[in-house]
Design a protein around this nucleic acid. Structure first.
Length: 799
DNA sequence: CAGTGAGCGAGCTTCCGCTTGACTT
C-alpha cells in the first residue's frame, strides 16, 4: 500500500505524474468537481445565510467512495488540483467530502508537468486557501441564483424550457445586437481611384506600375471631375520612400485562439476542435487544451530553441515570454503546445494531424525571429492638382518566423504580400494606361461565427476555456441562435474609366453580403433578449461579469465575506424577479405591420405556439383572424408588410388532376402539393408561388413512378421482409428496422435466408437495446448537460 | 412527417465550471 495519495483533476495528468513519482505514491484523478449544488430546486438555503447544499454528483459516487478508501490508508494525501479558483474549490470539496485530516493533508500546485516541477511542489506544500474557495462559492451561488430565478420567468412569460444565465444571455445579446446593426446599416458609396502606369526599366523593358489614390471621392461628379483633370495631365514620380518594417509572431495558443485559428484555417467548429484536441491530449501529444495562458514552460522554450536551430539555424531563434492580457485569466496551465517539440507531426486521423501541425507551427513560430520587411512607397504627382497616386510594395528581407508558415501552408496569402516594385527614379515621367474610378460601398458589420463569438466573450471576460464550446452549443440548442448561410444580394456599381483619352461610364453588378456558417438570432432569441434587457439590464450588461469578478477578487483577498457579497446582490436582484413575474406582460414579440389592403384589417406578426406567424385581423373582432406561418428565412424583426401579404397567397389551388384539386402550400417540411390527400414535396428549384398545373402534375407523376419502383421484392411467408429502393440505394426492412445490403449484392437475388443472415451479421437489434438502456439511464439521472443531450439525439437518429 | 394559432390546466424545464465515460453476456 503506497504511503502517499496524490489527487489531480485529470486522469491523463495522473498517468504522467505517476511515472515521475516513486512507488510510494499513488496518483488518482477526481475527474473535475466531485460535488455541486443540489440538482433539484435551487440548492441554496436562503433562511440559513445562503448555505450551499452540496451533493456528490451521481456519476461521482463510486469514485468518491474509492478515493475515501484509499485516502484512509494513506499517510499523506496531496491535493494537487489546478491553481485557480475552481481548482482550490475542488481541493476543499475533496477535503470536506473525504473527511481528510489537516495534519495529514497537503495542498500542492504546479503549472507544468515535469519531474522537477512536481518534486518542487511536493517540497513546498501549503494549506487550502479558504478565501479563494469562498470566491468560488460566491461564483457558484451567484450563477445558480441568476440562472434558476431568471429561467422560470421565461417559462411563464415566453415559452417553457427556455433558459437564461450570466454567460449565455449575454452571448445571445451580442448576436441580437449585431443583427440589428446589420439591419440598420446603410451602405455609403464613394469612388476609389486606381491607375496602371506604363514605363520602361533601366534595360528598356516595358513595365507596369499599379497605384492608388489615397483619398476617395464621395460623389460621382467629383470622381468624374478628377478623371477629366487626369485626361491630358502629366504624371511624375515625386519621391520614393523605402522603410524597414517588422512582423512579429503571435503568442502560442490558448483555448480561444486555437478555436479561432482552427475555424479559419481548417474549418472546424468550436466543439470539433475541442474534441480533436482532447484526443491529442489523452494520447500525450499536446499539453492541456483548456487554458487561458500563453505561457510556455522553460522546458518548452529550451526544446523549441533546439528545434529551431537544427531546422533553420541560430539566427532564426528569438526566445520570447508572452504575457497573458486576457481579462480574468487564471493561468492554471501552460499555453497549448506539443509535448515534444521535436515531433513535427503525429500518428492519428487526418483531423488530428492537421490540428497538431497547426499547434506545432504556432508554438515554434512564437519562438522565432521577427520577419524583416522593406516597404516601398512611390508617390506620383498629377500635374495641375494637389493629388498624388501612391504605389506600394513589400519585400521580405528576412523571413524569420514566416518560414514556418510558408513552408507547408498555402492558405496564408493574406499575411504575406511579396509584390516587388520595379526600380525607378525620382522625377521620372509615367504614362497612364488606364485610370479607373470605381464606386465602392462601406461594409456591413459581419455576423459572428462560433469562433469570433468566443473571441468576443473572452475579450469581455465572460465564460471560461472549459465553457466556450458548451455555451455555443447551449444557445443553439435553446434555439436562440441558428448557424446558417446568407445568400448574396446583387448590387450595381458604377465604373468610370479613362483610357485612350476617353472616359467611359459603365454599370457593373457584384454579389455582396454572402455569409457562410454564421450565427443568426431567432425570433425567440430576440424576444428573450429584449425582455431580459428591459427588466434585468444589470445582468445583461456586458460588464456584469467583469464587475462581479472584481467582487470575487475582493473575496479571494479576504477583504469581504462571500455571504455578504451575495446578500448585497440578492437583496437587489430578487425583488426585481418577483416584480417581473407579477407585473410583466406575456412576450410574443408582436409587431403591427399595417393594414391588409383587401380586407382593411390589421396585419401583424408575432410568435405563436408553433413559431412565428403573420395574422390578419385581431381576436377581438367578430370575424376570426386569418393566420400564416412565416418562412424559415423570415423574421418578425425584419419582415415587411409586402412580404407578409405574400404569405397569405398560400395555400393556392393550381388546378385539377384526375378530377381532384391540387393545392400548393408550405408545410413544416417545406413547400408541397396536396392532391387526393397525398403530399408531394416540391423540389427546391420550384417556386410555390408560380408553379403551374402542368408542372404540378409532372411532380405527382414523378413521385408515383418512384413509389412504383420502391418495392423490389417481398420475402417471407408473411412478407416480413421487404427489399426496397431508398434514397441512398437499395436496402431491406424487417420488423421496422432497416438493414444495409452489402456492396456488390444484386438486391433482386436476395433470399429470405440470406436476409436472415444479414440481420444476424448487423447487430442492429443489440444496438437498439443498448441505446434504450442508455436513454432510460439518462431519464433517471435527469441532469444531462446539453452536450450529452446532443449525443443522445444523435444515437436516436442513427437507428 | 404535412397545417394547427385554443387554456378545467398535470408536471416538467433551468445556471456555470471542473473533468471524462458509457450497466452486462
Amino acid at each position: 500500500m503506497p504511503k502517499n495519495l496524490v489527487i489531480v483533476e485529470s486522469p491523463a495528468k495522473a498517468k504522467t505524474i505517476e511515472k515521475f513519482l516513486g512507488k510510494d505514491y499513488q496518483v488518482m484523478s477526481s475527474f473535475g468537481h466531485i460535488r455541486d449544488l443540489a440538482e433539484k430546486g435551487i440548492g441554496i438555503d436562503f433562511e440559513n445565510n445562503y448555505e450551499p447544499q452540496y451533493v456528490v454528483s451521481s456519476d461521482k459516487k463510486k469514485l468518491v467512495s474509492e478515493l475515501k478508501k484509499v485516502s484512509k490508508d494513506a499517510e499523506t494525501v496531496w491535493l494537487a488540483s489546478d491553481e485557480d479558483r475552481e481548482g482550490e474549490a475542488i481541493a476543499w470539496h475533496l477535503y470536506e467530502e473525504l473527511k481528510l485530516k489537516k495534519d495529514t493533508t497537503r495542498r500542492i500546485v504546479f503549472h507544468e508537468i515535469t519531474k522537477e516541477a512536481i518534486l518542487h511542489a511536493i517540497e513546498t506544500p501549503r494549506d487550502i486557501d479558504i478565501n479563494l474557495v469562498d470566491a468560488q462559492q460566491a461564483r457558484r451561488v451567484l450563477d445558480r441564483i441568476v440562472g434558476f430565478e431568471l429561467s422560470p420567468i421565461l417559462w411563464r412569460k415566453v415559452r417553457p424550457s427556455l433558459s437564461a444565465g450570466r454567460v449565455q444571455s449575454v452571448a445571445v445579446r451580442l448576436i441580437v445586437e449585431r443583427e440589428r446593426e446589420i439591419n440598420q446599416f446603410v451602405a455609403e458609396a464613394s469612388y476609389r481611384v486606381s491607375a496602371i502606369f506604363n514605363s520602361v526599366d533601366n534595360n528598356g523593358k516595358p513595365i507596369e506600375l499599379k497605384a492608388e489614390l489615397p483619398q476617395r471621392f464621395p460623389t460621382k461628379a467629383e470622381a468624374m471631375a478628377f478623371l477629366e483633370l487626369c485626361n491630358g495631365a502629366q504624371f511624375n514620380i515625386d519621391s520614393i520612400i523605402t522603410k524597414p518594417a517588422k512582423k512579429s509572431p503571435a503568442p502560442p495558443f490558448t483555448t480561444s485562439t486555437l478555436q479561432q485559428e482552427a475555424a479559419r484555417k481548417l474549418g472546424y467548429s468550436v466543439s470539433q476542435t475541442m474534441q480533436i484536441a482532447q484526443r491529442l491530449y489523452e494520447a500525450g501529444k499536446i499539453t492541456y487544451m483548456r487554458t487561458d495562458s500563453v505561457n510556455l514552460s522553460d522546458l518548452a522554450l529550451g526544446t523549441s530553441k533546439a528545434e529551431i536551430i537544427s531546422m533553420a539555424g541560430q539566427k532564426y531563434v528569438h526566445t520570447r515570454k508572452f504575457n497573458t492580457k486576457t481579462k480574468g485569466a487564471q493561468e492554471a496551465h501552460e499555453a497549448i503546445r506539443p509535448t515534444y517539440m521535436n515531433a513535427h507531426t503525429v500518428e492519428g486521423t487526418a483531423q488530428e494531424k492537421r490540428l497538431y501541425e497547426l499547434i506545432w507551427k504556432r508554438t515554434i513560430a512564437s519562438q522565432m525571429s521577427d520577419a524583416e520587411l522593406e516597404k516601398t512607397s512611390i508617390y506620383i504627382t498629377v500635374s495641375g492638382s494637389k493629388y498624388q497616386f501612391i504605389a506600394t510594395g513589400e519585400v521580405i528581407v528576412f523571413d524569420g518566423f514566416l518560414k514556418v508558415y510558408m513552408e507547408s501552408s498555402d492558405d496564408e496569402q493574406d499575411t504575406v504580400d511579396e509584390s516587388l516594385l520595379p526600380a525607378m527614379k525620382n522625377g521620372e515621367e509615367l504614362y497612364p494606361m488606364e485610370i479607373v474610378a470605381q464606386e465602392r460601398f462601406s461594409q456591413k458589420p459581419p455576423r459572428y461565427t462560433e469562433a469570433s463569438l468566443v473571441r468576443k466573450l473572452e475579450e469581455l471576460g465572460i465564460g471560461r476555456p472549459s465553457t466556450y464550446a458548451p455555451t455555443i452549443s447551449t444557445i443553439q440548442n435553446r434555439l436562440y441562435v441558428e448557424k446558417g448561410d446568407r445568400q448574396p444580394d446583387k448590387r450595381d456599381f458604377n465604373v468610370l474609366k479613362l483610357k485612350g483619352g476617353k472616359i467611359t461610364d459603365q454599370i457593373k453588378a457584384e454579389n455582396t453580403g454572402a455569409e457562410k456558417s454564421k450565427l443568426f438570432p431567432t425570433d425567440i432569441g430576440m424576444v428573450v433578449t429584449d425582455f431580459l434587457t428591459e427588466y434585468f439590464p444589470e445582468i445583461l450588461n456586458y460588464n456584469f461579469t467583469a464587475d462581479v469578478e472584481k467582487e470575487f477578487d475582493s473575496i479571494a483577498d479576504g477583504d469581504i465575506k462571500w455571504r455578504v457579497a451575495i446578500d448585497k446582490f440578492y437583496k437587489k436582484f430578487h425583488p426585481i424577479v418577483e416584480d417581473t413575474m407579477k407585473n410583466s406582460e406575456r412576450q410574443v414579440g408582436e409587431r403591427i405591420l399595417g393594414v391588409d389592403p383587401k380586407s382593411g384589417r390589421q396585419l401583424s406578426v408575432k410568435i405563436g405556439k408553433y413559431g412565428p406567424l403573420a395574422q390578419i385581423g385581431t381576436v377581438e373582432e367578430e370575424e376570426k383572424p386569418v393566420f400564416a406561418s412565416l418562412r424559415r428565412d423570415q423574421s418578425i424583426e425584419s419582415i415587411t408588410l409586402e412580404e407578409a401579404l405574400e404569405l397569405f397567397k398560400l395555400p393556392r389551388q393550381v388546378g385539377e388532376y384526375e378530377d381532384k384539386v391540387m393545392t400548393v402550400a408550405i408545410g413544416r417540411f417545406g413547400p408541397y402539393i396536396r392532391h387526393d390527400n397525398t403530399f408531394y414535396s416540391l423540389p427546391k428549384t420550384d417556386d410555390p408561388m408560380d408553379i403551374t398545373a402542368e408542372r404540378a402534375i409532372e411532380i405527382i407523376e414523378e413521385k408515383r413512378e418512384v413509389e412504383k419502383n420502391r418495392i423490389i421484392q417481398t420475402l417471407g411467408d408473411n412478407s416480413e421482409i421487404q427489399v426496397l429502393n431508398g434514397r441512398f440505394g437499395p436496402y431491406f426492412t424487417c420488423d421496422k428496422v432497416n438493414y444495409k445490403i452489402p456492396k456488390g449484392t444484386d438486391p433482386t437475388t436476395l433470399t429470405f435466408e440470406k436476409c436472415q443472415e444479414l440481420i444476424a451479421a448487423q447487430p442492429e437489434a443489440a444496438n437498439k437495446k443498448k441505446s434504450f438502456g442508455r436513454k432510460a439511464a439518462a431519464a433517471k439521472t435527469d441532469k444531462k448537460t446539453s452536450a450529452k443531450g446532443k449525443t443522445s439525439t444523435k444515437s436516436k437518429a442513427k437507428k
